[in-house]
Amino acid sequence: MAEHKIRVTVNGTAHEAEVESRLLLVHLIRDVLRFTGTHIGCDTTHCGACTVLLDGEPIKSCTVLAVQADGRQLMTVEGLEKDGQLHPIQEGFWEKHGLQCGYCTPGMMMTAYALLQQNGNPSEDEIRQAISGNLCRCTGYMNIVKSIRYAAEKLP
C-alpha cells in the first residue's frame, strides 16, 4: 500500500513524515511526532480527547487521516504556551479547577481556544454547546465553563 511523504506544520514548526494511507492523524501526532498531549479516548468520534486545530478549526484527529493534513497547519496543546507564558485558557483551567484526571483537558482546551477566537465573550450556554463534542468524566463541566469564562475575561 502506498506511502505518502507529507509535510505538516505543528505549533509553527514544519515536520516531514512518510506515512501509510490509513495512518490516523492522531497517531501521526502522538506516535510519530511524539506530541503526546493529544489523547485518544473513544475511537468512534465521540469523546474529543484527540481534539487539535487543523488550519485553526478544532477537529477530532482520530477521524482524519494523516495524509489529509499534508501541507496544513496543526496546533496541539503543546502550542498553547508561548515564551514560557501560559495561555489564559491554561491559566483558567488551573485557577478554576477545570481538570481532575487531565485526560480530556488538552482536547477541551483546544476547543475552548477555538471558541474564544470566534467569540470573545461566550455565554455559559454558548460554552456548553461549544464543548459538547468533548467528554469529561471527572469534573461535571461546571469548572470547565468557569475556566473558559476566566480566559474570556483575561484575553484582550
Partner: peptide
C-alpha cells in the same frame, strides 16, 4: 490552593501509559 499536578497536565506533559514508548 491550586493543584500541584496541574502544571504538567495543562501543558500536555502528563505521562499516561500510552504516552510511554
Amino acid at each position: 490552593i491550586k493543584r500541584k499536578e496541574d502544571p504538567r497536565l495543562i501543558r500536555g506533559k502528563g505521562t499516561y501509559v500510552d504516552d510511554i514508548q
